[in-house]
Design a protein around this nucleic acid. Sequence first.
RNA 1: CGGGACGUGGCGCAGCUUGGUAGCGCACCUGCUUUGGGAGCAGGGGGUCGCGGGUUCAAAUCCCGCCGUCCCGACCA
Length: 587
Amino acid sequence: MSEGTGSGAWRMPASPYRGSWRLDGRFWPTVRDDPADAEAISHKLSVRAGLVRQLAAGLYTVTPMGLRVIQRVEAIIREEMNHIGAQELLMPVMHPAEIWEATGRYGLSEQFRLEDRGGRKMVLGMTHEEIVTWHAARELRSYRDLPQSWYQIQTKLRDEPRPKSGMLRVREFTMKDSYSFDADEAGLEKSYEAHSAAYARIFDRSGLLWYRVESDVGMMGGSGAHEYMAPSPSGEDVVARTASGSYAANVELAVSVAREPDFGDGPVAPEEFATPGIGSIEELAGFTGQHPATLAKSVVLVADSGPVLAIVRGEHQVHEKKIAHLIGEHRAAHPEEIREWFGADPGSLGPIGVSDAVRIVADSTIETGHYVTGANREGFHLRGVVLGRDFQAETADIRTVIEGEASVDGQGPIELVPVIEIGNIFKLGKKYSEPLGATYLDEKGQEQVIIMGSYGIGPARVAMAAIEQGHDENGIIWPTGIAPFDVHIVLIGDADSPQGEYAGMLWGQLSDLGLEVLLDDRPGLRPGEKFVEADLLGCPVRVTVGKRTLPDGPLEVMVRRTGDKSEIALDGAAEAIRALWAGLAAG
RNA sequence: CGGGACGUGGCGCAGCUUGGUAGCGCACCUGCUUUGGGAGCAGGGGGUCGCGGGUUCAAAUCCCGCCGUCCCGACCA
């Protein structure tokens, strides 16, 4: 039998103030040097500022300090989700495989799969559409039960092909995922708009610059989707948008008005000409002196149905996801396959005279103009090739957008911006409710399929995007909404010195005013070390308390974002600091 | 999945080409001094050099295999 003495061998005193910390005795592992294998700024700074530690590729532990930021993001999310009437619940991370088999998503390459001791197939959840729908199918029986919005903040596991950039692309992460259940499309529209409004507030309160863009539905399926993107050089996605934001879309589905090159007059029929040693579009443009837009690029893909020849203008590229909508899953052709189907090597390929087995898909831009294409003969090309006259092809938008092309809304040129995806919203429709039998009885007693939506946010990505968007050479500059603390008091001197006692008092007063305050009361550290670490951590307001502060002040206060220092009187200092912070928070 | 780079005390690195006593800075421990922007001096602890095999009298170093981590690519002919 054991007993508690209550004496408390642990030396760190509990804080009487909810949310405020004294630093002495805390685990806060900062580092001087950038981690050797870090590239992204958020990766370097999140490690150096002692917010996270890596366990393995794509697996990170969040430290007590890092957790404060994550929990602040989550608190904002909870408030805004609750505000639109979404209800928090919690679903398991491990799922029976059968449920995923029902929707055809068992066996996805990113899915962690395992067996329990009885040999039952299980999966680790990469998302929770299947599970939430499984429950909805059992619990929601009547139109009177609808609508519903449920959300959770729960771990997701994905066996990423390439985890990267610190916490930005990981194999295990926490996600806020919500799901709406409506009786019809009009209901879904309302739920979707409610989430859209909540997301705007969440990302605004998190202090991010963000874009809402049209997006591909991807592995979620469904009828429509938007992504929330935070611009950052470390982002993996690219958004095409006008300067005003009048048009904004993921490049995976972005459209634009292609520039029209001057084709000049072409021959009445294709003419073959020698192009010795010419392989790439760049070489061909240099050789012919023609603009790349008048050269047709031929790309050979292999779909389940067989070989596909995709044709775009030389300045464009075939977009993987766009063409996937037409031809489905596919891969690049091997050189041997290309030789078999075209009788030539890559570099001299074209649409004329190819085997009937090859499906030809041309980008819509190819419908106008005449082009130089490969002749399917080593070292030769054809000029004056015209779609419809000289060869037949399906046409569709299969190209990438390039910077500077005109926006389809007439609002000026398109710019391409690298972004971090911080959230997304999907209109799922019946994609999951149908196969999992989530139905209800309407007013007339007719069975109807529930119309669903799903909505995700990655809190850690929000935090990392904030670092990407807010930092300088000294460290992080947190937005006020998600900073680990509102105010960081640097105490110069020991806790039991007069200035130490004053700092403790100020810490209490500020906390009583509703601020979350970090008091750096660690003994033995030099002032410089405390300042450097305060800059690294990046709380919005820093207050310095030292010998000079007493007996008559003033207090030195610094705003992290601007570096502006001001001196304030001891009398009413806490209120003045709170007012300063409130001014920053108000933006 | 393809390509590349890197694995040496906790962190950041040198040493490897040309095999022969494992080194530097920071961090850590002790003492003294110092205390408003990553202190100084003195003393000290800590590494079977990612793992396995091979060559050799001898391997951090050369060879083979594996593992790990990061970066680039994964249609762009």
